[in-house]
Amino acid sequence: MSQPIDKQRRAFLATASGAAAATAVAPGVFLHAVAEAAPRDSAVSDSVRYGMLIDTSKCAEGCTDCVSACDRENGLDMLLKPEGASDQHWDMQRPRWIRQVKLKNNLTGRVTALPMMCQHCEHPPCVDVCPTGASFRRADGIVMVDRHTCIGCRYCMMACPYNARSFIHESVRLKPTATPRGKGCVESCNFCVHRLDNGGTTTACQDACQHGAIVFGDLRDPNSAVSKALAQYPSEQIRADLKLNTGVRYTDI
């Protein structure tokens, strides 16, 4: 009975040292972030709005690099299937911050793939409905959950048009310092907020994408890569009809 847990714990420690190794393996961005590591000492302001442009034409079918990078970065891979749960049920209950969706255009039959995640709306329905204000939009445009005031009612999940939120259905046994989480709260993609607050400038999914399909940055800064790309290519919002002004945009769906 204690055997599998021990094994998990060893795996846990292995991941911990794995993070250190990654610093050496991926010198570019990671070291860059570390070198500049200056934890934020004043409140974020709305002079920044974080956002993303996803070039759908570059997103490779069947590639899950962004998904596994997100899982690793945010500790989602540390969650264990509860003993007795079926694989199928666990798959529907485990949290997912990012996923790949493959689409076929009904008229033309053209097939595209794209990553879906929290779209970081300017007018997020999840924030409007949250009874306690736990679901909130930070000044810099990141939509996230304060898990200290979340009561687990899941109304935000009902309201999200993007199926972007997850509920923690089980007790969390392995608790890395960097990614606290526990049973009974809702969570979703937060643009790797801990990286940004510690001086980083990229998200894990962006770093992991070998095809360069994800550009992340400050939408308010006309010189940022994401602003330039947005100025250059036609882009669209998913469910633009809802007028949520999403922070994540797509080209070439």
């Binding site: 420690l13 993070a19 608790k175 310092t177 960097a178 990614t179 606290p180 526990g182 049973k183």
Partner: peptide
């Protein structure tokens, strides 16, 4: 209830 979520010892991932 802090420690239902927060690590109770340094894990080295920080």
């Amino acid at each position: 209830d802090c420690f239902t979520c927060h690590a109770t010892k340094p894990t080295g991932t920080e």
